[in-house]
């Protein structure tokens, strides 16, 4: 049963990693537009350049 001395804190640490991840995502504004985020996932990353406008776009 000594193994629990490692396993249980390890489990808690994993939970803590999850919490830190959640707080980071909250702080970086990922919950501000849930409707939009759902759609952004399926957009192309690099939209086909619309012809016309001036100056080539820099990435």
């Amino acid at each position: 049963m000594e193994v629990m001395v490692f396993l249980v804190p390890l489990a808690l640490c994993l939970g803590l990693v999850g919490l830190v991840g959640f707080l980071w995502s909250l702080r970086s504004g990922q919950y501000e537009d849930l409707d939009g985020a759902a759609w952004r996932a399926i957009f192309d990353d690099d939209p086909p350049q619309a012809p016309a406008p001036v100056a080539p776009r820099k990435e």
Binding site: G36, W39, I42, R57
Partner: peptide, 28 residues
């Protein structure tokens, strides 16, 4: 109202020179 509008607006405005960022919030 939809994702199409979001993409259309963001692309349309990003194409303007000197615009560094255009981001639509679909919820608000």
């Amino acid at each position: 109202s939809c994702a199409g509008c979001m993409a259309k607006i963001e692309r349309g405005l990003s194409a303007m020179p000197d615009v560094t960022r255009a981001r639509v919030n679909l919820t608000d």
